Amino acid sequence: MAHYVIALTGGIASGKSEVERRFRALGVHVADADVAAREVVEPGTPGLAEVVAAFGPGVLGADSAMDRAAMRRRVFADDGARRRLEAIIHPRVRAALRADCAAAPGPYAIAAIPLFAEAGRDAYAAWVDRVLVVDVPVEVQLARLLRRDGIDEALAWRMIRAQARREQRLAIADDVIRNDGPLEALDAAVAALHARYLLLAAPPAAAL
């Protein structure tokens, strides 16, 4: 079981998934908040029942699953709605991530948490040992988001501004990967951090 946990975070479209993929390739277990967020509101779960109670049956698609595209448009146009949705989903996601990391093989695990800064470090203090931030300038975020999601610029800005500011994320970082260059540059950065984390996660040498 992993006894050392790194929180991996960064703004939307910063390249967290690319960093996560490279850690996985090195054999590191990654617990992904985005995956957990989908699982806690799958059809038949208490999470989805609470979402429907809060927002009405109109949030469901024809397959009885949450219509994620419609919900995204709604919550990024209404801060109150976004906070209500987060209050339902985030505690469930944190519990799932903690359990996943605790059961992970290897000396350390990574919890990929896009909204780590928004929740605050105290929300994870009991089980997260270190914070790694993937950092890019906001103009790079915007360009990538427009290209990736095919959305209009107004929605892209709302999505960016709904998250913590770049300065807030950097303020809580123990380690930073700057990801505004070629993807190949991530290989060396991740390899160096992996070596550091193995040392940090190693049990202390027995006293002679």
Rank of each mutant, 00 (worst) to 15 (best):
A25F: 05
A171Y: 05
R148F: 00
V19R: 13
A54P: 01
D187T: 14
A195T: 13
K16S: 11
M159V: 14
V35W: 08
P107W: 01
D187V: 04
A54I: 01
V138S: 15
S17C: 01
A62N: 05
A49Q: 14
E167F: 11
A36D: 01
A117Y: 01
V30Y: 11
F76V: 01
L146F: 10
A192K: 05
V51I: 15
E42M: 14
R21P: 00
A201W: 07
R165N: 12
S64M: 14
A65I: 00
D100L: 06
D187F: 02
V41H: 02
P46N: 06
P43L: 12
L115Q: 00
R72E: 11
L60W: 03
E118A: 09
A192R: 11
M71R: 07
V52M: 02
A119F: 10
Y4Q: 04
A25N: 07
R83I: 08
L170R: 13
D135H: 10
Y4D: 01
L60G: 09
V5S: 06
V40Q: 11
V19F: 07
A171W: 04
A119V: 01
H90T: 11
C101H: 11
A125I: 06
L26H: 15
S17V: 09
G58K: 07
V133C: 13
E86P: 01
I151C: 07
D175A: 06
